[in-house]
Design a protein around this nucleic acid. Sequence first.
DNA 1: TTATTTCTGTGATATACATCACATTTTTAT
DNA 2: ATAAAAATGTGATGTATATCACAGAAATAA
Lengths: 234, 234
Amino acid sequence: MSELITPTCTLCKAGLKSIFTELSPAELIQLNQMKTCQLLKKGKVLFSEGTYPRGLYCVQSGKIKVSQIGMDGKEQIVHMVHNGDIMGYRAIFGADKYSCSAVALEDSIICFLPKEPFYKMVENNSKLALKIAHILADELKDAERKITSTAQQPVIQRLAQNLLILQEHYGVEADGATINLQIKREDLANLVGTTRETVTRILYELQHQEIIELSSKKIKILQLDKLKKQAHKI
Amino acid sequence: MSELITPTCTLCKAGLKSIFTELSPAELIQLNQMKTCQLLKKGKVLFSEGTYPRGLYCVQSGKIKVSQIGMDGKEQIVHMVHNGDIMGYRAIFGADKYSCSAVALEDSIICFLPKEPFYKMVENNSKLALKIAHILADELKDAERKITSTAQQPVIQRLAQNLLILQEHYGVEADGATINLQIKREDLANLVGTTRETVTRILYELQHQEIIELSSKKIKILQLDKLKKQAHKI
DNA sequence: TTATTTCTGTGATATACATCACATTTTTAT
DNA sequence: ATAAAAATGTGATGTATATCACAGAAATAA
């Protein structure tokens, strides 16, 4: 975790779409002073399930998986974090341990805000507190949807849905179709809630139907409408 | 939905363990004035997925299931609400539709707080906003756990876990062992994420092992430790 | 570059659970 | 109280997907 040239909060694109829209210029400067930044190399752990939070993490750039370990040691990815997302809101509410771990899927730049000064800021700004509640409510809605689809839908639908989410989340490359993310089969499996082997087989099935095109760890969406149909989103 | 003798917020046990701990006596009185109460008969709908929220619901007594409909019309229960719980926080954040429906599992008394005055109150009380964020964060944590167990664990474990949750949530009857809830097999199935038939079979299996005892719609836990073992909580 | 580790593809096999179909019991309405 | 509707139990059958096992490819380290 080597230190980097620290980006300025006031200019940070990440902040714009996040909670920092609720802050005054003065508060933003204050925020900027209390934060530290780091480069988190691919595969490195930002925080671990069971440890105690020390503050908030704000993703300046990169991709992070947030996952937890099931009873028999299998990983479940519950959230794919990206550019502008903030992790660990729960840190500010008390003494709770992390219920998830966060691991970089590629080199990422992460800003860190220590717990106490941030808490003070929230305490004095109900708009900010409301914004946090709002974000948590949205995440809760997504999580509830995920419970339902996990419980009810076959793997191919869930996989298709997750490909659509990843595409929307991380965008596409210059060709306008390749999802801007390198992800290994096992992570995809742990996101969808299935096995590596099943992901392999279904991805090949989708490729065979010319809905997607595979090249090592990248996925290109050839026919978005057909993918949506597979996801039952049409 | 007939009107009832309205319980007083200041005396309401429900409120004590909820967000209202953050309110001053003056605010509580104000709250009391803006609320209305209703008796919601068993089977009746409090609100429906897809409609627009008009405010917050606070469960004074009774039991409510909060569920959503999957792509092929099957119900998934995402939350079992009880005494003191508040539903529909998301109502205060904007124009979003309900993503779930709420239906009474037994006759329940529900208080209603209209959106706007409550929002004003939250806006002026960052502690209250933080408390709401805190509750949402807890619910999110539970939802994430549920994603993981739904994705990874066999039905018998999930069913056992849910029985434990229901027991903790709703308590037990005078005998100290019968879960204080009448629930039909289908609802249990929709909570666990399986079918009615599978629930029947597994409940009988647990009864055969003398872990539980069934009598129509009630479930008595005979051996809590063994049930926990089935849930892999030991 | 070579060696070593980590990923991926693919077949064979097993199984947990859904689905269907219908009888029986319980609950609700008249 | 009786009829109608809703909920439950149970067997037979099908199938999606996990599991196992191993070879080949790709990525990483030395």
